[in-house]
Computed example of a mutant assay.
Amino acid sequence: MPVGPARLTPEQRAAIAGQIGDARPATPGLLVAFGKSVRDRHEHEHPKWEDLFCMNLSSYMGERMAPVLRRLLDLEDEVDALKASRPDRLTRTFAPVQALREDEPATDALTVYRATWDVAPLGTYTTEAEARKHAEDHARRDIPAATFDWIVDEEDGIAELVATVDGDENPTGYVVTALEIASKYDPEADE
């Protein structure tokens, strides 16, 4: 089930684009004005007969709706492009939000990778390659002539960076650790 409101189909988007022509996207100022108009319509005292105030606001908003629709179409196109370029990442990113919307637990935990130097954190990344790159770049400042390699402990999965200088291999203190981010608390999980 998608996160957020129902999306327009490609056919509906094409129909709207044809109907609004070359309208430019709405400015933030226009959106703020629309919000104020909606509030004003709800909050004013409605007469029993003809409500000229509401009719005037509706007319104002109707005349300026094309830019709002253009902005909507542009944003939906942008979301589709992002989904097409990074489908796995978007799925992982929105899984916890989707689970909250559906009142169901997310099925997968998110895995991130933390690069550290001894006890100092360097950064946390969504890919192991980027975490390793950060650690290697940091280590290269101190040992520019070294050749680096990663040794992964099969038991805990922690990757340790080792440096080889003049044929001697030594640990550097840089490690990359995979961390699982849970979507909900599990009292039965190992502490």
Rank of each mutant, 00 (worst) to 15 (best):
Q98G: 09
M65R: 04
A129W: 01
T172Y: 06
W49H: 00
L8P: 09
D186R: 05
D51G: 03
T9R: 10
A120I: 09
I158N: 05
T91H: 10
E76L: 15
Y125A: 07
L8A: 14
A14S: 12
R89Q: 06
E128H: 02
V3F: 09
G62R: 01
E169C: 14
E102R: 12
D168A: 14
A66D: 13
F148V: 11
I181F: 01
M65E: 05
E128M: 10
A163T: 10
M61E: 14
R64K: 14
Q98C: 04
Y174C: 15
R114H: 07
G21Q: 07
P2C: 10
K48R: 02
I143G: 00
K184T: 13
D156A: 10
H44L: 13
H138E: 07
F53R: 01
Y60N: 04
Y125C: 04
F148W: 04
A66K: 09
G18P: 02
L110C: 09
T177G: 07
E180D: 05
K83V: 11
L30H: 04
T111L: 07
A6I: 13
A146G: 02
F94A: 09
I151V: 15
V162A: 09
A106N: 06
P25E: 12
A146Y: 00
P47L: 02
A15L: 15
A15M: 08
P121G: 11
I158Q: 09
L52R: 01
I158T: 15
D142N: 11
S85F: 01
L110R: 08
A163V: 13
N56S: 05
E191S: 13
G123R: 02
E102S: 14
R64N: 15
R92A: 15
N56A: 05
W117I: 08
A95G: 08
V175F: 07
A95Y: 00
H42G: 13
